[in-house]
Simulated scan of single mutants.
Amino acid sequence: MHEMSIAQSLVAIIKEEMEKHGLTRLHAVRVCHGRLAALVPEALAFAFEACTLGTPMEGVQLEMQDIPIVLRCSQCGTEFSPEAGDLFMPCPSCGEGLGHEVLQGKELYLDNIEAE
C-alpha cells in the first residue's frame, strides 16, 4: 500500500510549509491526483488519517480532486479525453487507436493548504 508513504510525505510537506510560513493551525488540505496516478483515494484518506492521529493535524479535512485523462493523438494531434478511463479509445477525429501521448492524468500533488 504505497498510499501510506504518500500520506507520510504529505504530512512532512505540510509541516515544513506551516513552519516556513509561521502557521500553527491546519484546517484543510487538497490533493490533486490523475486517474492514471495508481492511487486509491480511499486508501490515501485512511493513511492520512492514520498518520495524523494523535497530532495537531488530527481531524483535518483531506479533499481529493480527480484530474481527468487527456490524450493527444499520435496521428493527427487531436486532444481528447477517453471515456471512463479507456486508454484504448480510438481518436475521435482520425480513428487512430495506438500511440497516444498522455498530456494529463498522471499527476499527484499537494494543491492547497488552508491554515492560520
Rank of each mutant, 00 (worst) to 15 (best):
M1F: 13
E3F: 09
E3Q: 10
M4P: 13
S5D: 12
S5Y: 09
S5Q: 12
A7C: 11
A7P: 06
A7R: 09
Q8N: 10
S9V: 10
S9D: 10
L10E: 01
V11R: 05
A12N: 12
A12F: 12
I13N: 13
E16Y: 10
E16A: 14
T24V: 13
L26W: 00
H27S: 13
V31F: 03
L36N: 07
A37Y: 11
P41F: 06
E42F: 11
A43V: 06
L44G: 00
L44V: 01
F46H: 15
F46G: 14
A47I: 03
E49L: 03
E49Q: 10
E49N: 09
C51E: 13
C51W: 06
G54P: 00
T55H: 02
P56H: 01
P56V: 04
V60S: 00
E63M: 07
I67Y: 11
P68S: 06
P68W: 02
I69N: 01
I69F: 06
V70Y: 00
L71W: 05
L71E: 03
R72M: 07
R72N: 07
C73H: 04
C73Q: 01
S74D: 10
Q75C: 15
E79W: 01
F80M: 07
P82C: 09
A84K: 14
A84Y: 11
G85S: 09
G85E: 10
L87S: 03
L87G: 10
F88N: 15
F88H: 15
C91N: 02
C91S: 01
P92N: 10
P92G: 08
S93H: 15
G95W: 05
L98V: 14
H100G: 02
E101L: 09
E101D: 12
E101K: 13
E101P: 12
V102Q: 08
V102F: 03
V102W: 04
Q104F: 04
G105C: 04
K106H: 14
E107S: 05
E107N: 03
L108C: 02
L108K: 03
L110G: 01
E114F: 03
E114G: 05
E114N: 06
E116Q: 11
